[in-house]
Design a protein around this nucleic acid. Sequence first.
DNA 1: GTGAAAGCGCTAACAC
DNA 2: GTGTTAGCGCTTTCAC
Lengths: 353, 353
Amino acid sequence: MATIRDVAQRAGVSVATVSRLLNGTGKVREKTAERVHKAIRDLSFRPNALGRSLSTSQTQSIGVVIPSMSNPVFADAVAGINDEARTRGYTLMFTSTDYDRDEELRAVSNLLDYQVDGLILTVADPEHSPVLDMLDETGLPYVLIYNQPTDEKRPTVTIENVAAGREAADALAGLGHVHTGMVSGLFAASDRAKARREGFELSMARRGYPAPMIVEVDYVDLDVHTRLAAILDGPDPAPTGLFCSNDLLAISVIGALRQLGRKVPKDISVIGFDGIAVGTHLHPTLATVVQPSREMGQTATRLLLDRLAGKETPAKVILPHTLRLGESVGPVTKQSPTDLQEPFQPAHRRPAS
Amino acid sequence: MATIRDVAQRAGVSVATVSRLLNGTGKVREKTAERVHKAIRDLSFRPNALGRSLSTSQTQSIGVVIPSMSNPVFADAVAGINDEARTRGYTLMFTSTDYDRDEELRAVSNLLDYQVDGLILTVADPEHSPVLDMLDETGLPYVLIYNQPTDEKRPTVTIENVAAGREAADALAGLGHVHTGMVSGLFAASDRAKARREGFELSMARRGYPAPMIVEVDYVDLDVHTRLAAILDGPDPAPTGLFCSNDLLAISVIGALRQLGRKVPKDISVIGFDGIAVGTHLHPTLATVVQPSREMGQTATRLLLDRLAGKETPAKVILPHTLRLGESVGPVTKQSPTDLQEPFQPAHRRPAS
DNA sequence: GTGAAAGCGCTAACAC
DNA sequence: GTGTTAGCGCTTTCAC
């Protein structure tokens, strides 16, 4: 690989001149510029970003840390980040953490070593996050997405999760659902799931309805089927409406319900969260709360890069979410569906409460 | 930020000793090591990867360039790449190109500037690719995924696309479909779509069946509805079986068919390609050819890193694909569905042939 | 306009 | 075992 020194030599100038030309800093005589350009072409020289970064102490790169690539909601956000970063000349360093807190720390540490200029990330728990503490300590600029920390200092692009949860409940209640449930991934791994639950429960409580049953499933486990069978077949009145903390989960839930002989939405309504594209292609189409994921990524990137450029930026941006009523929700047909046929659910498989 | 010099000073040793300790190269007296460790902790020192990379001329990072983040098939591959890279201590630099050839070049050039140790990528056309030419010229190690170049020299992890296309055709033909069609994204942007088409047409030709109708839709356009209406309502016998170059497209197609009053699979069968997870949750479930995307990413990464480590590696790895028959394909019920009701399709909207 | 030279943070001979 | 020192490829004063 040719270096700037080689170019300088071949053009009969000093490295300083080449550098100036390359970066458009300082004036270079037309004649000289031509010679240098020729040398660059002849040697097919490409400036080494490492050398530049070491010298300028900025890398023109930003780190991206998200829980999972396989959830379209994050993939879409990354697409937005990529868009915005690219047009502004920034490169992405990327890691996904699989919802693992230790992995978060490892990933961010690693990106710090690589001297990224800033970070965009979604963490498990922004309230107790070693990662964010570390970042705050370092002073490295970052922007959270999806997370909704109470701390107003932490830069965030998000939606109103509590309100969204409430709206999901309102939608269900509006259709006559009184006994409801929420199916969620591990709350410990998602502050937004917690917030959505809070809103959901709030709305139900305000109506004097029974508290929603909570079904917390492990992302790896995902044995949604067993867990659902248990509550449908349980001693308590079975829910007629189910709120799922995300669309992927909602899709699993609908599949499991089908296997359990329940028809959606006739026997039971299901509403998801995220608004991933495939939802509209399902049959029944998925009712959900739509987050503007791509825009979230774009906005976060814009915020981060503006800040890197020294501009004043808001610490928190709340993007609008929208309720998308799909065919997976409908009016209550029977209030107590416990008398439905139970295809198979031996009593001993019910988990101990 | 503390540097290695600061640490050395505080521990009363030379930078060489600190470096040796950090990298486990060379011996360091127990006593000394302790002092250094303490200094590192006290200063919360983190080695600057830029300095190291500049010195060792390797970055422990690999570049990833794929067409789109929003297609789960690529997202899954990236997940696999991330897995494997992470466990082997490599960091990912990432770009998506939106199927744009110029963008490919820009992206790769950029990653080269950042001195990535190698690249994993999917290009539009591996036969005529300025990017690959550039890479071959540079000598920078890379591995293609999804692409299936004829050139045996270009390292690739892929599946047998022609065979897979043939199998899709066989499946359709086996169900009695004679008049078929293929719906694809731009062939110019996908060598694999071309290969799949080749296999599909081959199988049909071998049977003496009419050549499949080809519907090429632009990824941005995606006006699948109009295009489908045209062929269903056209002068030629309408196809009873449709092969789509990827699952996302198949999902759109099924949606469009539904709007056009066609029932899948009763009136028309649809088979996709990729095997993205949601396919199994659709209703009808999506028939498709499954590619092992995650494994593809993993394998490519393993190959690349093995090569970086100086190991001998195969230039081409063909991973097995599998046919997943879903409910979106079925036997032919009527051979000429042209007499079906046409909900709305004014003649003037038919594109000129 | 242009050049000389001092760094940026680290590794790796090479001495001792 | 440990220290000295010359780079790695670039930018950026400071002279001229």
